[in-house]
């Protein structure tokens, strides 16, 4: 984003120096190399993410449809998932995840409320503490 903007600015400045009639700066007027620049600059990072994150994720999902042990590598369809949801231990694990979701409203506000009670419900930021208008902290 900043690349596109700065190139647009540089372009319009140079266009203003020459005659504005021939080089009207616009989206279509920019050369191909400038329009493609953000994508080229993003490409290495995207390539690394795809190669080392997303592709292994796909491989892992694919691997989950194959068998273990004797039928190593043989496609078993949803067999692993059926076994998973038949396993009471895994059901307990999912049950515990539900418990975590329910406990989340306890876990998240605890730091916030601790801060609140220590500063009387008023966020004493640096600016408001320094401002001369009496900060209404700790008053009712």
């Amino acid at each position: 984003m900043p690349i596109g903007k700065s190139s647009l600015l540089a372009r319009s400045a140079s266009a203003g120096r020459t005659d504005g009639a021939t080089a009207a700066p616009g989206r279509t007027g920019r050369p191909f190399s400038e329009r493609i620049a953000p994508f080229v600059l993003l490409a290495p990072a995207l390539l690394i993410i795809v190669m080392f994150r997303l592709w292994p994720l796909v491989l892992g999902v694919n691997f989950s449809f194959t068998g273990d042990g004797e039928q190593d590598g043989a496609p078993v369809g949803l067999g692993n998932y059926a076994e998973l949801f038949d396993d009471p231990v895994f059901r307990t694990a999912l049950h515990n995840v539900g418990l975590l979701v329910l406990l989340l409203p306890v876990a998240v506000p605890s730091p916030a409320c601790w801060r609140r009670s220590s500063s009387c419900g008023y966020p004493a930021t640096g600016s408001s503490a320094a401002s001369t208008s009496s900060p209404p902290c700790c008053r009712r």
Binding site: F63, S64, D68, L84
Partner: peptide
């Protein structure tokens, strides 16, 4: 030693 089952659990 059940990597495929673990993989399914990871997907879930």
């Amino acid at each position: 030693n059940r990597p495929a089952l673990a993989s399914a659990a990871s997907t879930v």
